[in-house]
Design a protein around this nucleic acid. Structure first.
Length: 464
RNA sequence: GGCUCCAUCAUCUAACGGUUAGGAUCUCAGGUUUUCAUCCUGGUCACAGGGGUUCAAAUCCCCUUGGAGUCACCA
């Protein structure tokens, strides 16, 4: 069985890059009928863990991703780690190091000055004498001193890390007894039964250390997939300065979770030429072995395009429902279908769609000057008045075509072109030169509102 | 600086050594739309550079260059 996990450190919110690796992990587990676990890495900053977990759960909920089982908090697993530390101590695979921070620091300085790699020299590795007084020891693990550690990565291939150039006897427990990251990660992954670790590229150089721990404890090393980072449009690492990195900010901005997920799944992974992936398709097609090995840049235009696509293709009932959190309540409006059909293909985001709905449903307070000027050329106002008269005399108009007939009749009577009626009407009803088909706008507004808007405009132009 | 990773259009990417290097976003030009948007059609745009290996290289190897990550009693 495939078991994956997402193991964020509690920094406050779910990062867009984190969501991608979480998504990959989720898809891979679910595709194989396995498990997708969640673990909070709060060995150090225990204070934020509750909020962080909630923020992550909230984001997971928003995109419709669910983890299996209970959330694991590393801060609550101290005894487990302590037990393994003691085990390693007893087996002679780890040892107490009494070197003071100051001494360690001066050694590092000397090494740097000599242009050597800063590393712990192994002073207490085989120490048997009496330890110096007054120093709380840290626990170091005995790492190999030569040869290579091989990481078989599902994305990068097989990588050989030369031990001499990158490892030393690293600390697995601090002076206060608390375990360190690389130690607990390996233990938890092993204990949780994680078979496939899908995580960010930035953990690649941690992997040899974790393998040392796996080996010392006799655990089976999982399969690793190190996904390259997401860069900003300038090609640099994505940071808070690049605008939205918080997943939930995309909700606020009016992005649909399915669009964001589709965008992220395609950012670094592909399936031939396919661009649009439903949840079901992701689930059946995703394969971490086809993840691209180079880093990628976040590009807003494509997200916008995807978002527009999902808005456009969403059933109106569903769309109306999703619009509620954005402050749009169309419940009870008898023209919901017409309104949404008219506007959804013009919206890039839900926020945009709300704006479009408001523009349609709320009578214009101001008229675009240049638009009005253009629309009122010649005897346009007379045409508008003629139309108004016809409209006032009409009853039972429902469809756009009903209003269209009325427009045709007006210009037929006056012997003018369609533009003579279309433009003035457009400005009168919407206050601008652009917008949805004008007959459809009238069908949405109904006779009363349409008349009112025309009258307002006529009154306005009389004073201009 | 050491170690490691990465390198195809502006961007996301395809290519199982043999293709006129394909698709998508963006952009541009047409068409549809009384307008705008959508939609449709078409165009511009890429194998970082240099060496090898091979009948044949975007693809394999090496070097250069350029990016990135990481080197803690952080995670």
């Amino acid at each position: 069985m495939i078991v994956t996990r997402f193991a964020p450190s509690p920094t406050g919110y779910l990062h867009i890059g984190g969501l991608r690796t979480a998504l990959y992990s989720y898809l891979w587990a679910r595709k194989n009928g396995g498990k997708f676990l969640l673990r909070i890495e709060d060995t150090d900053e225990a204070r934020n863990s509750v909020e962080a977990a909630q923020a992550i759960i909230e984001a997971f909920k928003w995109v419709g991703m669910e983890h299996d089982g209970e959330i694991l908090y590393q801060s609550r697993r101290r005894e487990i780690y302590t037990r393994y530390i003691e085990q390693l101590l007893e087996e002679g695979k780890a040892y107490r190091c009494y070197m003071s921070k100051e001494e360690l620091e001066s050694i590092r300085e000397a090494q740097k000055a000599a242009k050597e790699r800063p590393r712990y020299p192994g002073t207490y590795r085989d120490f048997t004498g009496t330890p110096p007084a007054g120093i709380e020891p840290v626990i170091r693990i005995k790492a190999p001193t030569e040869g290579h550690i091989r990481v078989d990565d599902g994305i990068k291939g097989s990588i050989d890390f030369p031990v001499a150039d990158m490892l030393d006897d690293f600390i697995i427990a601090r002076a206060d007894g608390s375990p360190t990251y690389n130690f607990v990660v390996a233990i938890d992954d092993a204990l949780m039964g994680v078979t496939d670790v899908i995580r960010g590229d930035d953990h690649l150089s941690n992997t040899p250390k974790q393998i040392v721990v796996y080996n010392a404890l006799g655990f089976k090393v999982p399969k690793f997939f190190h996904v390259a980072m997401i860069n900003n449009p300038e090609g640099k690492k994505l940071s808070k300065r690049d605008g939205a990195t918080d997943v939930m900010a995309y909700d606020t901005m009016g992005y649909l979770p399915e669009a964001l997920l589709n965008f992220l799944v395609r950012l670094g992974w592909s399936h031939g030429d396919q661009e649009i992936f439903s949840r079901e398709e992701m689930l059946t097609l995703f394969d971490p072995n086809h993840i691209n090995n180079s880093s990628s840049s976040f590009n807003q235009e494509k997200l916008d395009w995807l978002n527009a696509h999902y808005i456009k293709n969403m059933p109106n009932v569903e769309l109306a429902h999703r619009l509620v959190p954005f402050g749009v309540d169309l419940k009870g409006h008898d023209k919901i279908e017409m309104i949404l059909d008219l506007l959804k293909e013009r919206a890039k985001t839900m926020v945009h769609l709300k704006a479009l709905i408001d523009e349609l449903l709320i009578a214009p307070r101001v008229y675009d000057e240049t638009a009005a000027q253009k629309a009122l050329k010649g005897d346009a106002i007379e045409v508008l008045k003629a139309f108004r008269t016809r409209l006032a005399a009409s009853t039972a108009l429902h469809l756009p075509s009903d209003y269209h007939v009325l427009m045709e009749a007006t210009i037929g009577e006056l012997g003018v072109g369609f533009g003579k009626i279309g433009m003035p009407l457009r400005v009168a009803l919407l206050g601008a030169m652009t917008g949805p088909a004008i007959d459809a706008v009238m069908a949405v507004l109904g006779i009363e509102s349409t008349l009112a808007r025309i009258d307002s405009f006529i009154a306005w132009q009389a004073t201009h």
